[in-house]
Design a protein around this nucleic acid. Structure first.
Length: 575
DNA sequence: GCCGTTTTCGGCCCGACTGTTTTCAGTCG
């Protein structure tokens, strides 16, 4: 899928045009096209092949031509040309906090700066101070920004950021005079990675709340503390920003600071068309405030139904809300079981029984034990003789457990040729077979596509685990033709997994929506390697919510009987 | 560069903060 690749090029074009002082609306047109591509629940190559690029919002003549050129030749002449005009590190300097296009161009023209080395020089020899509009503080600000850029703060994963934020929220709730507290920003929208943690609070004495915030025990360093906002760094380096408003502005502020950016822009346009204005203090008609107390008020006064934060990305939710046609998306309470986990039989830390008891405590009806298969030696994959013994253990356990069912499964390896790591005879004895790729993840796209499709077509395989293999901070998603793979999954009644581990979240939100659009059944699994790992389910559910999935589209929202029916049905269709 | 219940031309979201100004430009979210 080249969606991200082309999106990155459009981002770069926008950066360069901005540096060149080009009309900002033209710059935005490229940024908008980049966002549309990133969020697109289709493979752009397929859309182009169908001649439907111009139907994408924000895709006019120029953008369509650029995309077609790139797909045909692997190059974009306009980009190459722009790149030559902005040499050295000039484009990358935009990523330095406190440095924008005006500063970069000024440094280039007056001081001949084109590289990071040049930048360091003009900061240190104070020649930067002499430029118009520059002063001591501004240069200091740029120096600190450059340091920050060098230390290259990686984005945090959701699974790291959310617990840290929740701890702060819990403490703030106990502070005197605090009325509301909530996480906000991309964290509240449950994006898979987060830049900064944003927390919003309300109370009658905001300045005092900010003071209390900076004194929390987790705080390692106070970066800023004003009357309505504070910013701190906690021990492990996370930056947390707090904003405080009055209780009467709570809903407006929560809506505003939750975003996302594109969603908010569209809301403001909508408000404008209705003769209103929207900002963090409320929805205004002239001097009159029409809504501010709750998020619901804000949306309703704009003629919209209120939608969950996970949907607020301008991916069609505003239009659906206006039609009063928002889907009822899946929630954690809809989950009835967990269909991927490991036990001490392979590389897990807890016994099958311990996993079952922990899962029952979560309110589940069933689990699927999916220990690794024989060729995955590093994870102590089971040879067929051990598969039989593990099965016997599960049978004994089921005789003992009431109102709960342990299903015997496997996470069988998809081998380099697309065959499965057990003979059919072994596979047929499992209740449900899950198959995943663990080796040769960097196969070229054609080969990987063929490999996964062959696994999907195996009559015993029911679920494909972590389909793209991406892991934050470790490796990129494997290259493959996602639409082809998904069409094969739909045709063969094979479910695709949303792996809930916060380092995977694979399928991601865009792919999960694509799959659902193509009629594929999804399954949300924790891949837990111990009882604690079962709690990751909420991260997988958040991906599903961002993908607008309904509970009917999620396999493990089915009660046990329906799950087994689905399994039998799919087998019948395939054979 | 895109787009059309204001429009095929003239629009295109809003406010805070900071620093360097003396009314505003640049950057950020």
């Amino acid at each position: 899928m080249k969606n991200r690749e082309i999106a990155h090029i459009f981002e770069s074009i926008a950066d360069i045009l901005e540096l060149q002082g080009e009309n900002l609306f033209r710059v935005n047109a490229y940024r908008n096209a980049a966002r549309i591509l990133q969020d697109l629940a289709r493979d752009v190559e397929h859309v182009a092949a169908e001649g439907k690029l111009a139907e994408l919002p924000g895709f006019g003549k120029s953008i369509v031509e650029h995309v077609e050129e790139y797909l045909k030749t692997g190059r974009m002449a306009r980009y190459q040309e722009l790149r030559r005009e902005m040499p050295g590190d000039l484009v990358d300097m935009l990523a330095i906090p406190g440095v924008g296009p005006r500063t970069i161009v000024l440094m280039k023209e007056k001081l001949g700066v084109t590289t990071f080395e040049d930048l360091k020089r003009v900061i240190n020899d104070r020649s930067l101070d002499a430029l118009p509009g520059m002063g001591e503080k501004k240069v200091d600000h740029i120096r600190r920004g450059y340091q920050l850029y060098l230390s290259a703060r990686e984005r945090m994963t959701l699974g790291v950021a959310l617990p840290a934020a929740e701890e702060i929220v819990e403490r703030l709730q106990k502070v005197k005079g605090v009325k509301h507290v909530s996480v906000a920003g991309s964290l509240r929208r449950m994006k898979e990675t987060i830049g900064d943690i944003d927390i919003l609070a309300s109370g009658t004495d905001p300045a005092k709340i900010v003071q209390e915030f900076t004194r929390l025990p987790q705080v390692a360093e106070v970066l800023a503390a004003g009357d309505t906002r504070g910013s701190v760094r906690v021990e492990d380096g996370l930056q947390i920003d707090l904003r405080v408003v009055t209780p009467g502005e709570w809903g407006a502020a929560l809506q505003y600071f939750t975003g996302g950016k594109a969603h908010n822009i569209k809301l403001r346009e909508l408000a404008g068309r209705k003769g209103m204005k929207i900002n963090e203090y409320g929805l205004q008609k002239g001097a009159r405030r029409v809504a501010a107390k709750t998020e619901e008020d804000i949306y309703h006064k704009l003629g919209l139904d209120c939608m969950p934060p996970e949907m607020r990305e301008d991916r069609g939710e505003i239009e659906a809300a206006a039609r009063h046609d928002l889907p009822r998306i899946v929630q954690l309470a809809d989950i009835r079981g967990d269909l991927q986990m490991h036990s001490t039989w392979s590389d897990g830390g807890d016994s099958i029984e311990a996993m079952a008891i922990a899962a029952r405590k979560l309110g589940y009806e069933y689990i699927l034990i999916t220990d690794h298969s024989q060729s995955l030696k590093v994870a102590q994959g089971l040879v067929p003789a051990d598969v039989k013994k593990a099965r016997a253990e599960i049978d004994r356990l089921n005789a003992k457990l009431k109102d709960f069912r342990v299903l015997a499964g496997t996470e069988a390896d998809i081998l380099p040729d697309g065959s499965i790591d057990y003979p059919d005879k072994v596979l047929e004895a499992f209740d449900i077979v899950l198959a995943s790729v663990h080796m040769r993840l960097d196969d070229p796209s054609d080969r990987m596509t063929e490999r996964v499709i062959r696994a999907i077509e195996n009559p015993c395989v029911r679920i494909i685990g972590h389909p793209t293999g991406r892991r934050f901070g470790y490796r990129e998603a494997s290259a493959m033709d996602m639409e082809k793979v998904m069409k094969a999954a739909a045709a063969n009644h094979v479910a695709l997994e949303i792996n809930a581990h916060y380092e995977r979240l694979d399928l991601n939100d865009v792919h999960a929506r694509m799959a659902a659009d193509l009629g594929v059944m999804l399954v949300i699994s924790t891949d837990a390697h111990n009882t604690a790992g079962l709690s990751m389910m909420r991260f997988g559910v958040s991906v599903a919510r961002r993908a607008w999935l309904k509970s009917e589209q999620v396999l493990n929202c089915k009660p046990l009987g329906k799950l087994l029916e689905w399994r039998r049905m799919s087998k019948a269709v395939k054979r």
